[in-house]
Design a protein around this nucleic acid. Structure first.
Length: 626
DNA sequence: GGGTTGTGGGCGG
DNA sequence: TTCCACCGCCCACAACCC
């Protein structure tokens, strides 16, 4: 920012930091990076002319391929709210207007308004240092409820321009304005102005906007005329290359402090254009993935298509506290973190099998210790039990932070198979050929004819249900499909009877429900462990646990339903196990499972196990043995 | 040799 | 007075296993 006395700021930050353990750790990290720079430089020196020529050929080919992927037909808009949290606080408390303001605490700031930034105060700066830089700084604690409210208002505006807009945080979003520009025959500049005005009208807050042919450039552009401004980069090759020619690499998302340092000090790269000039060296020194990223920056390429919704990969919770080596205190904190994580997982209906313990020692050294389990867990007790084992192995230790991360969730996404992970889909499709059958109508026919289940046929009959958002195979006799009648929903269970398929539909208790408007929705019916049905109250709230998931969250809903179903299956297995019924009373004929009336499940679920989950794998294997 | 797992670290917000 | 967060994603690399 203009007017910032950078030298003074640096001096104050240095004076307040030097000698601290944090500072010492920063120096240690810097030394590691410097060593890496030295190593890369040494590698460069060793490159022969032939090698450089070879890498140049590789790079040139890669550039041609990347260039061929260029798409100038799209127009993306990136919106970034100006000093969002601080602006919301000022909006709600006008007496703060014009005063230097930061949101956060004395230990860390989330953001600072533009008055505070003039003093060198910025986000991710400790409050006590900020106060030193700006003694009149007002620091207010964050209130995320408020920010979420205003964020929702902005998102309503974005959705008017692009129903599939991408929100990357509370205050940033990407909007594909290609269609609206075409439909209204207006320029992207007009759309940008209109969008900014609408956001101001709706929220009283200002935002900055960038428009470009791809998201990477749009984000760079939104930063150019901040605050309360906009910058339009036309969908024109020459304009893009001119823009890129002098653009510092640090302005590009994905290039952080370390990468900037590395590229500058090893290859003398400062601008995006120089990525292309040094392409042979990039190929020689970095991985294929990294090189592609660097070269695409040099070409001004970025994402142009709306990405598919991504499933969550992990969930974590961590807490910083005053450094301590008191073991009982550490285990108590670990229990608190385990509980918080368990609650979060429960809210999203997640079970995971890889648990990672993160530790930060009092000297700021970060360690992670992970364990992958045979079982999927989510309860506080289970998380804590495994986390405690990991922590015990590290003690004695003085810690200032602990965190827990859970990953490797159920994977029910079609086409993404983790061989270690038996998803319900895996089970029904793959295991059907061994001990169970899918109770679809077509499979019934196969079995009646005495034919083996062809896995591909099973897939055809069952998989389509998954692809369309179903959780479990759904009985849809042709009669129902053709007559628009409501099909009874039957839930497949692994072979629970030797008698084969029950083809009498009456024995399958129809699991049809009607919502509060009388509409039936068999597709989303499901029983839970208590025999209750799962459906979406008001097409929004899970009838089992009350979780709120709007209709558009198709995959989240599927995952959520899967969670309840898995819980049901596992608990039932646990119950059956205790009753000792499995081996003795349920001989299973190979290949033949049968439709399991859900009512039957419901009756059995009158007593549910409150114990630990049995691994879903164990559940399936048990039946396979038979 | 290729896949999985564990570990460390970069990045963005 | 206060003394550098939290979260989620990604990637690289090494060790290990089949």
């Amino acid at each position: 920012m203009d007017g910032v006395d950078k030298e003074r700021v640096q001096k104050i930050v240095y004076e307040m930091s030097k000698g601290s353990k944090y500072f010492e750790n920063e120096k240690r990290k810097e030394a590691t990076i410097n060593q890496k720079i030295e190593d890369l430089r040494a590698q460069c020196v060793l490159l022969t002319d032939e090698q450089i020529s070879f890498y140049q050929t590789v790079a040139d080919k890669r550039i041609i391929d990347l260039e061929a992927s260029r798409d100038l037909s799209k127009t993306w808009l990136h919106s970034d709210m100006d000093a969002f949290y601080a602006a919301v606080e000022t909006l709600e408390n006008p007496s703060l207007k014009g005063k230097p303001l930061a949101v956060g605490s004395m230990s860390m700031l989330c953001t600072a308004n533009y008055e505070a930034r003039k003093f060198g105060v910025r986000a991710a700066m400790p409050g006590f240092i900020a106060r030193k830089l700006c003694p009149d700084l007002i620091v207010v604690p964050p209130n995320f409820q408020k920010y979420t409210y205003y964020s929702e208002l902005t998102r309503k505006v974005f959705s008017n321009y692009d129903a599939d807009f991408i929100a990357t945080s509370l205050d940033e979003a990407y909007v594909n304005i290609t269609d609206i520009c075409n439909d209204k025959s207006v320029s992207s500049e007009q759309i940008a102005s209109e969008l900014r005005n609408t956001i101001y009208e709706q929220t009283g807050l200002t935002c900055s906007v960038g428009v470009a042919p791809n998201r990477l450039l749009a984000k760079v552009c939104s930063d150019i005329n901040k605050p309360n401004g906009q910058f339009i980069l036309p969908n024109d090759y020459k304009a893009i290359m001119t823009f890129i020619s002098s653009l510092p690499i640090r302005k590009v998302g994905g290039i952080g402090k370390v990468t900037e340092h590395l590229l500058r000090d090893v290859l003398g790269i400062n601008t995006c254009e120089q990525m292309l000039q040094k392409s042979a060296y990039l190929c020689a020194l970095f991985s294929e993935h990294s090189t592609d990223f660097f070269l695409s920056i040099g070409l001004g390429l970025g994402g142009t298509d709306t990405p598919q919704h991504k499933l969550r990969k992990s969930m974590s919770c961590e807490r910083t506290f005053s450094a301590t080596e008191d073991e009982s205190a550490l285990f108590q904190k670990l229990a608190d973190i385990a509980e918080a994580l368990s609650n979060d997982m429960h809210e999203e209906g997640l079970c995971g099998r890889t648990l990672t313990l993160k530790l930060k020692t009092s000297s700021f050294e970060v360690r992670t210790r992970a364990t992958s389990l045979q079982t999927y867990i989510h309860s506080k007790e289970d998380i804590l039990a495994h986390a405690s084992k990991l922590l015990k192995a590290e003690l004695p230790l003085s810690l200032r932070l602990m965190g827990l991360r859970m990953s490797q969730f159920y994977d029910v996404k079609p086409g993404r198979h983790d061989p270690m992970q038996k998803t319900l889909k895996n089970f029904i499709i793959k295991d059907a050929s061994q001990s169970t059958s899918c109770s679809s109508y077509s499979s019934d026919q196969h079995l009646r004819n005495g034919a083996n289940i062809d896995p591909s046929a099973a897939e055809e009959s069952c998989l389509s249900k998954f692809e369309s958002g179903h959780l479990m195979a759904v009985c849809e006799p042709e009669d129902y499909q053709q007559s628009n009648q409501i099909a009874p929903v039957k839930v497949c269970r692994p072979g629970n009877d030797a008698s084969g398929i029950k083809d009498n539909a009456d024995e399958c208790v129809p699991q049809v429900h009607a919502d509060n408007e009388g509409r039936s929705n068999p597709e989303e019916s499901l029983t839970n462990q208590n025999g209750k049905m799962l459906w979406w109250i008001d097409d929004y709230i899970c009838s089992v646990c009350g979780a709120e998931l709007p209709q558009c969250f198709i995959e989240e809903r599927q995952e959520h339903s899967d969670y309840h179903l898995a819980e049901m299956l596992q608990k039932e297995e646990s119950l059956n196990n205790r009753r000792g019924l499995l081996q003795r009373e349920r001989p299973v004929v190979s290949l033949v499972g049968k439709i399991s009336p859900v009512g039957d499940v419901a009756r059995k679920k009158q007593k549910t196990s409150k114990g630990k989950f049995i691994p879903i794998d164990a559940f399936f294997n048990r039946y396979k043995k038979d």
